[in-house]
Design a protein around this nucleic acid. Structure first.
Lengths: 234, 234
DNA sequence: TTCTCTAAGATTGTCGACAATTAATGACTA
DNA sequence: TAGTCATTAATTGTCGACAATCTTAGAGAA
């Protein structure tokens, strides 16, 4: 049976499948951000009944990808600079915590495996310098492993099933590429070193800084877009 | 129209009502922690169809009060010492953040109003020394106001709609009373003073400590219960 | 023209019934 | 007696239809 690549839970029911499919389409922008969702239309498109679709919508709502109003309907969440700040403030606090916990709770072999993953990223990075691979799968995988290393199930769920899709959405649709790639690598290295020496306080600090830098990066993109827009409007 | 006392959103649909009712029953223990939920039975009890009930269950799941397994069903979350630690770790990080933000973003009149509330609590406390009022409505109200003062909507939603009911559940069902009442008051006072002087760093630290103390309190209760149990089993 | 109100249309909320899956019962075998 | 398998019962997942609500279009009045 297939399983969800993020929550690692098996996909059994039809609404599971619709949920995963819609999530991908929303994160990748196939279903446009801010757009209204028509239940009858989407139900037809996915070949399921409205009840099944609504089940999926409920779950999308609980990971912040759609917003509902009673008797009005669903909207895909809109990406705004304000919301980006809010989400990253929360992310920083939670992943900072995860990192501190990981410094205590991550098993030695998990740490080794993560270091290996980093080396692998380095290779890949050299080959496709500046491309988005690292920022996508690679970077996320790094963060995922640390989150998992916290061994705090509630935290893991909150981040993996809750916040991460929204963060991914910002990064995918804002098109994160460029010179931050190599800098991010160094930051990852410093973090894993702090974890390896069980220095939770340092690991937390470094992770928070890493995330701040990442935020500034997305923020820049927003500013650029805003500048473009105001130039066009002249 | 009535409205939800916690999320402040209006209760319009039938599933809204069922959600709020069930939430209260679960938090207060009327619906027993860890127990299995029968959809047909509860639907009959609340006088709604299964579809409506399932809508409510979905929402209860997203605030961590029930857990679902595909083709198996729902269970009310079980209160365990391990989970308590996990939840409080997350809570500490998030409310610490809220407190730091509140030091920057809370309006002067909001601060004044909160100080007034504290005074009011002091009066009440004197009257019903040792009773659970303070720990319930009062303490929660204090925390709510600070969370709201963070002005971070995502954080506010995450705490008010997400984590807080679960925390309430632990506190209500573990029966929080006793000598911590007056100590908690002093801690609250110190926190609001830090916020008033816009010292975010201090406010965050104090809040985290305050929450740690609160956790230790619930933890004690767990240990006591465990000791009782093992004594009975002899 | 602009605003208000009304009526039609479309969308969401809710229901009861059926299909698919899981859990419980009991017969059968070792 | 204990364990395994098949059958039955109960529960969850899914569907299509109806009811309640909101939105839109258009007529009429100021």
């Amino acid at each position: 049976m297939t399983q969800d690549a993020f929550s690692k839970t098996p996909i059994t029911t039809a609404s599971d499948q619709v949920f995963v499919d819609m999530r991908r389409e929303i994160v990748e922008g196939t279903i446009e951000q801010g757009s209204k969702i028509s239940e009858p239309e989407l139900a037809k498109r996915y070949g399921v009944s409205r009840a099944t679709l609504r089940e999926a919508l409920n779950r999308l709502e609980s990971c912040y990808l759609v917003e509902r109003k009673a008797n009005v309907g669903c909207r895909v969440v809109a990406l705004t600079a304000e919301r980006l700040i809010e989400v990253y403030e929360v992310r920083s606090a939670l992943e900072g915590l995860a990192c501190r916990l990981a410094a205590d709770n991550m098993a030695a072999d998990e740490v080794q495996s993560l270091k290996q993953l980093l080396n692998q990223h380095l290779q890949t990075q050299r080959v496709k310098e500046g491309e988005s691979y690292y920022q996508e799968a690679g970077d996320l995988d790094f963060h995922y492993r640390i989150i998992k290393g916290s061994k705090n199930d509630h935290l893991i769920h909150l981040l993996s099933n809750g916040l991460y899709q929204l963060i991914r959405m910002y990064r995918v649709q804002m098109g994160m590429v460029g010179p931050r790639v190599s800098k991010a690598f160094d930051e990852h290295l410093a973090i894993i070193n702090a974890i390896e020496s069980h220095d939770g306080e340092l690991a937390e600090l470094l992770m928070k800084r890493h995330i701040s830098a990442s935020q500034a990066n997305v923020q820049n993109k927003f500013d650029l877009l805003a500048a473009q827009k105001s130039a066009v409007n002249k």
